[in-house]
Design a binder for these strands. Structure first.
Ligand code: MG
Ligand code: MG
Lengths: 600, 600
DNA sequence: CCCATGTTTATAAACACGACA
DNA sequence: ACTGTCGTGTTTATAAACATG
């Protein structure tokens, strides 16, 4: 099989104005262990890692290191060194080691490249196995610690938008509020690019994003002295950087469809090694919410087979059409390892992901299948839906829709305590009585029927739908709540007699977001726990991964690789997990020994 | 009196990124008649204007000419020439002549300057009188006409934002919808700067603004072929360019408070002549919604008397602080008179404004006075409200609030048919059933109590209020409708149990916008008339200025002059009109002879 | 492949306002 | 008391990438 005809791709990479096309691929993403010359300062550590262990990093996960361990190496010793040295690592937040085992058998890059370019080959060719993850958490935040085994996090521009990073920052706090300065600091800590190499304007951009987006609202203390930025709860996807890491690095992420886990990790590592345009985060491209081709609906017959061939390099040639290309931001590619002050002890947790078991796509009960959103096809973010009207083809769409809620809820339920910054200042986490009145209010209308409106309500002009069904884990956009009624009246617009009567009877927006808005109390996250513990010793609240809501969840997720000049144009990944049977996805505290016999 | 202690300033001028500070004042705003060398091609006309008649134009009103007529000149002859030549003028939309009479007695610039700088002097010093306005409307849109008496409209950048211009364009249509191309064309027609001198990126900016602002929504025809852009009715202020002209040029605009009408016109002309930073439109500065100093509440005692001294040159010196100043858009100052094809006949209408009778400020019944919005003082657009809590001081605020609705309603009632483009294509103006679901929905909360929350609800953090009480005629921002409930719950934000239950009992937003939203059917504009006349001969629908709603209206309006290097730092204008006794403000067809004895 | 239209993000900048030196 | 600077917040402009038809 060359390429699967079903392509529920949700995310793709997109160049942004500050990213130039003409830059050569940088060479700084892979650092090997003792095998190369520029090895990490391992001598500073008491213990040494065995030979052959390689480290890899990436700007999207500056506090995460991928550790490739040859099968000939004792895994326990590596874990011992890492857990021992985890305290000494120089980073501000929790740090993660993703452990992969590598069988030295077929490690030739050519076969990897062939495999990646042409699709997954046989399982037996895989020489990379995902072992598990070690997460080190800071215990005493203010204690400086000398530099440890690993290098500083990579100081390249992360592939997240400002809006995403601000969400990561704010959601890292238990009470989900931060001052501007704290947001600055959080971003600088987790993405040293902004501390080290970015121009000064990035703080302007942070403030601009805070003001621009309605999802960020500002709260003021009663005395008017302090301002905290929060996220509108209705719009909060509760995204954390750790959540994104989980999605990006989890083998479970690709468990359900074509490329299974080993191949994904394979591909990930391959791209990291080859310094090609990676499927996973890369500096000069960008994780953006969907905006996927309309024709690539999930269950479409492979009529347009040439749609995702390597030749689909979208229009990048109309750029020299008279308009001069102006470099907006100077792209700094190479970063000198900064000598920042390290100041945090670590607590070590070990998590294990079980190996993926390829499961068929769960087609959830199409709850709101009857009324579907009609996209006028050129607008907002696109729904993944069929161009035709056969409703049976839309089963994956509803699966995808449901997965949106599932993603949000599960992300919330899976909120690991390591994601929550523990060194928060005693900021109030309750009794915020007033919120910033955001720009506009309830004018959300309907999710609009299918695109050619099939002659129902003829002569009716319809408003272009938002679509935006991308309520996936990696969708950083605010949640569009349909709650506000105030459907703009279909009468003459030149009339002043518009009423704000809510059209509650109209079942607008049949997206599963209704699960959150209409039945609010059924979803109870860990934040429902009493929050009185914040001012003092910060008792770590560990949410048990099994949420209280027995919701069936199914998530269709995707990443698309940007096409440049190679044949690796589009690679698709999916995620699909349904029901309560996948709490293990939540990365709860699972003993390594259950899955790794080496530890027994 | 040096400067009035009550300063209900609403608008001020503000430089924007594309406007550079270092440009010298341009010299192209005033064109005199036969008195100067570069006279308009009057020879091409059959009749000649008498000597001494001066023409003035300004980029903000490119289709409007201010005609200063000496008292020694026969007014009727001037009107005859203008009405005869109005058909020949080369412009696409309606054109307007604002007629002012000038007594040659005390026309010295120094006294004018003194008067303007130090406040209004005696009435007897005024030598400019506002006579009336001639509006020429195109009769046959597609007939080209040779160039007439007057110069081409000024091709300098208008002082309106893209958002404002898009509103002007869309609201110029009866059905208030336009295609993108029509918006382009309308803006090019009314502001030739964009047709002649602007770079190509301005259309990108138009599209950007349409997408960015929630107030612009897109409707799609049932077949999905055509898209029309409309304005969310709840957010529509029904602003038209003509409305702005009225506000800018009407002597009634300043009838109620300190500076009465003659002085305002005085000042207007003075600034036009002197090429200083004008109170009225200017190219390189900008009409922006309020953002006025908080301490300058309307009826505050003059405690902070030094607040508006000429020395209040805000920080413009931190610009050389390391950041290089980059010219974003090339500022084209001088425009060659374009040789565009003229193609419209004109129908002439004559309107007259009566001379203003200074009326006291009507203090409306403070409808929702008890609960006021608390501004955390650095946010959004500021309410004009007292810093202290004395409610009696807030009477002008409520006046101002009410004026917001009054402005909108009156603007709507005063909607002159000349403002409505008559050459609209047969686009549908009814039966738009679906509207674009806008980004977010009902999360507007409360108008928040006064700033130091006066110990009511202690320990309560409050969200910074929108404020944004600037529902004036010249406020181009969308109306923030409080209709949508979904007050973000004041409980812990880390909770997922946010409910969309509307807090209807909470009287949020006591702004007079409630008059429109809560009592919708009481306000009936001319658009309520049957719209079937659009496709054919375009029967000109003249709304009678007396609206159907007996609302008391009082508008406090203001313009602030940006301070550069002279003492004319801030000038304030007010508008206040109440009740039904000011239908004459509606610029209905009032005979000139009633007010100008010269015509009798 | 080009073009018009539409969406989204980045970046620069003007300016307001309060705190503070 | 005046003045300037700085941090924070709001708003607009402009360029650009990319999607869709
Ligand atoms: Mg915001
Ligand atoms: Mg819009």
């Amino acid at each position: 099989m060359r390429r699967s005809p079903r392509r529920p791709l949700i995310l793709k990479r997109r160049k942004l104005p500050f990213q130039q096309n003409d830059q050569p691929p940088t060479d700084s993403h892979s650092q090997s262990g003792p095998s190369t010359s520029k090895d990490p300062p391992k001598s500073a550590a008491n213990q040494c890692l065995p030979d052959g262990v390689r480290f890899m990093g990436h700007p999207s996960m500056p506090a995460t290191q991928v550790v490739v361990i040859p099968k000939t190496v004792d895994l326990q010793s590596v874990i011992g060194v890492l857990t021992a040295k985890g305290k000494e690592r120089g980073a501000h937040g929790p740090n993660t080691f993703i452990l992969l085992s590598e069988s030295s058998s077929c490690s030739s890059g050519s076969s990897l490249k062939k495999e990646v370019a042409e699709g997954p080959l046989d399982d037996s060719l895989s020489n990379i196995q995902w072992l598990g993850k070690i997460t080190t958490s800071p215990l005493e935040p203010d204690l400086p610690t000398p530099m440890g085994v690993l290098k500083q996090p990579i100081s390249e521009r992360p592939p997240y938008s400002y809006m995403a990073m601000i969400q990561f920052a704010i959601n890292s706090r238990r009470n989900r509020r931060m001052t501007l300065k704290e947001i600055y600091t959080w971003i600088e800590d987790h993405f040293p690019y902004f501390r080290d190499v970015a121009k000064k304007g990035w703080k302007n951009s942070i403030r601009h994003n805070l003001s621009l987006h309605d999802m960020f609202i500002r709260e003021t203390s009663p005395d008017g002295k302090v301002s905290f930025w929060t996220i509108r709860p209705e719009a909060n996807r509760f995204l954390t950087l750790d959540q994104v890491y989980k999605v990006l690095s989890s083998s479970r992420y690709s468990s359900s469809i074509k490329l299974e886990a080993l191949k994904v990790q394979h591909f990930f590592l391959f791209l990291l090694e080859r310094r090609m345009k990676p499927l996973l985060p890369r500096t000069d491209s960008y994780l953006v919410p969907i905006q996927l081709p309309v024709a690539s609906s999930v269950l479409m017959p492979p009529s347009s087979s040439s749609q995702f061939t390597p030749s689909c390099s979208q229009q990048k040639r109309n750029i020299p059409r008279g308009t001069k290309r102006v470099r907006i931001a100077p792209k700094v590619t190479q970063v000198d390892a900064p000598s920042a002050v390290i100041k945090q002890h670590k607590e070590i947790k070990i998590e294990v992901k079980e190996e993926p078991i390829p499961a068929p796509i769960k087609c959830e009960t199409p709850k709101a299948l009857s009324k579907r959103a009609a996209s006028s096809s050129r607008r907002k973010q696109h729904l993944v839906h069929s161009v035709h009207e056969e409703p049976l083809l839309l089963c994956p769409n509803n699966t995808f829709f449901d997965s949106g809620v599932a993603s949000d809820a599960s992300a919330f339920h899976d909120m690991h305590d390591s994601e929550l910054d523990r060194h928060e200042q005693p900021s109030p986490d309750r009794e915020f009585s007033f919120k910033t009145p955001i720009k506009s209010s309830s004018h959300l209308t309907s999710s609009t029927p299918s695109k050619p409106p099939s002659n129902i309500l003829p002569e009716l002009w319809k408003v272009t739908p938002v679509g935006k069904g991308s309520q996936s884990v990696l969708d950083f956009s605010p949640i569009r709540t349909p709650s506000g009624p105030t459907v703009t009246p279909r009468r003459d617009y030149t009339t002043l007699s518009f009423s704000s009567t809510p059209f509650k009877d109209l079942p607008l927006f049949n997206s599963p977001r209704e699960l959150l808005t209409s039945a609010p109390s059924t979803v109870a996250g860990p934040a429902h726990a009493p929050m009185e513990c914040l001012h003092g010793g910060c008792s770590i609240h560990l949410p048990h991964a099994g949420g209280s809501t027995p919701m069936n969840r199914s998530l269709t997720e995707g990443l698309v690789l940007d096409t440049m000049n190679d044949s690796l144009s589009k690679i698709f990944l999916d995620i699909s997990f349904s029901g309560l049977d996948d709490e293990d996805f939540g990365m709860a505290n699972i003993s390594w020994s259950e899955f790794i016999p080496q530890l027994k």
